[in-house]
Amino acid sequence: MAEATSPDLAVPALCILGDFTIFAAADLKPKIIEAINQGETDEVVIDLADVSEIDSAGLQLMVMAMREGAAQSKNVRFTRHSEPVLNLIDLFGLSGFFGTPALAGSTH
């Protein structure tokens, strides 16, 4: 899991800024799909460092992105998860699914 926390030098195909919630979901879905479609390498990196808020809608999009990448035989990878993102993944018990570090004090 070290890759999530160590400096990631890969150039992100998409940086998600601010709200990664239901308010932004309709806008972000096509952008995510486009980033995956246009990714020329096998790896599509989505940067989450500047996500200030995330909810279930945002998380669903992350799942969708990973599945869409798999369908196109591309590896969709999220990097630099902001704290709200890590908190939600932890709350939902999805650290294993997303390959993020379990937070200290986590119940899992």
Binding site: A26, K29, I33, Q60, L61, M64, A71, G93, L94
Partner: peptide, 27 residues
């Protein structure tokens, strides 16, 4: 305290059919 949680992602459809504002989650 949540001792254990399993999030059910099965209902999230493929990208083309997914409405990003719908909820597909179960726990």
């Amino acid at each position: 305290r949540i001792v254990n949680i399993v999030t059910l992602l099965d209902e999230i459809p493929r990208a083309a059919e997914m409405d990003p504002e719908d909820c597909y989650l179960g726990f």
